[in-house]
Simulated assay, not measured.
Amino acid sequence: MMLPTVIVPGYFAPATEYQAFEQLLSQFSIPTVTVPLTKWDWVPTLGGRSIRPIIDQIDRTVQDVRQRFNTAEVNLVGHSAGGWIARIYLGAKAYDIHPEPAGSVQCWQAHQWVHRLITLGTPHTSQERWTRKNLDFVNTSYPGAFEPTVRYVCVAGRSVYGEKRLGQWLAYSSYELTCGRGDCWGDGITPVESAHLAGAENITLEGVRHAPKSAGLWYGSPSVVEQWIDYLRD
């Protein structure tokens, strides 16, 4: 049996948005579980605050999946912000940039449980002030494909060019907040250059948009999954 996969949802996304994606991977004989987040679980993280509540839920899910499938390791698939949050979870350095309750137990060093991390449309960089503190911690503590025992695969979509005109403004603004310039290609939210990571296996897929609710194809559409799913099979 192939290693089980845990899906980490994107920012403020509930697990329910990933049901079809989870079922699709299961149909490819890959046991798959989504971290059971609701929108309410994200509320404490608003305004650039600690994403510790999300990391705790990732760890509970990973440990449950390891026990359920009797396996030492799992694969993580992080969509959007779920990808860089997963990078914090992998690392050995305590995530201490926000105050933590006294005596709290931290769930780090998960690289020992994870065989590979696949990120889908993840903004691995940001100029936006609310997310920059967290992402600066990630990229300073764990630059690039940091963990030598984990295989990193970063998938970017190339479907929307950011321009200052009707229909392109959202992409332009989002790209500018992420990488510092809006006139570039991306998936409508994350520019290609930010979705890639130094030292990882970086892939760019044409015509792929950012989110499950996007019009057209997204990273979890059947024809798109077929283009990257082999990274979960070897």
Rank of each mutant, 00 (worst) to 15 (best):
V138G: 04
S194M: 00
K39F: 08
I88D: 03
L170T: 07
F21V: 01
A156S: 13
I58T: 03
A171H: 04
T204H: 01
G48N: 14
Q168R: 15
A20K: 13
E193W: 00
R49P: 09
R52T: 15
V160C: 05
Q106T: 10
L135E: 11
G199Y: 02
V153E: 01
E226I: 00
V150K: 06
P191S: 06
I30Q: 11
G180A: 11
V8N: 04
G180M: 11
V192P: 04
T149V: 09
P53W: 08
T149K: 13
N202S: 05
P143H: 13
G10M: 05
E128P: 00
G91Y: 07
T34S: 08
S141A: 15
A13S: 13
Y89K: 02
P222K: 07
P36I: 01
L166Q: 14
S194K: 00
K213I: 13
W130G: 03
Q67P: 00
T178F: 01
L197Y: 06
L24W: 11
A92W: 08
N70A: 14
Q57E: 12
G186F: 04
A94C: 08
F146Q: 04
V153P: 01
V8K: 02
E176N: 12
G47M: 12
V74D: 09
A200R: 07
K93W: 01
T204N: 02
L232N: 10
N139P: 10
R209Y: 09
I58V: 14
G82W: 00
W84N: 08
I85M: 14
T32C: 13
V224R: 07
A110T: 04
R87F: 06
K213H: 14
R233F: 10
A200M: 08
S141G: 03
P9S: 09
K133H: 14
T178W: 01
P101C: 07
D230W: 11
M2W: 02
S159G: 15
D230E: 14
G48V: 13
R60G: 12
R158N: 09
G144P: 00
A81V: 02
G199H: 03
T45Q: 07
G157C: 03
T61K: 02
K164W: 05
V65I: 11
G10T: 05
P31M: 08
L3E: 07
Y231Q: 12
A171D: 08
K93C: 01
S141N: 11
W108H: 15
L37P: 06
M2R: 09
G82T: 02
S223D: 14
E163V: 02
F146Y: 15
R60F: 03
C107M: 13
R116M: 05
S214R: 10
T131N: 14
C154E: 01
T5S: 10
E226W: 01
V6S: 02
S221P: 04
E163H: 12
I30T: 11
R87E: 10
N70L: 11
T45N: 10
H124N: 13
V138D: 04
H79V: 01
H111K: 08
Q23K: 13
Q227C: 08
V35W: 01
P36R: 06
W40P: 00
H196F: 04
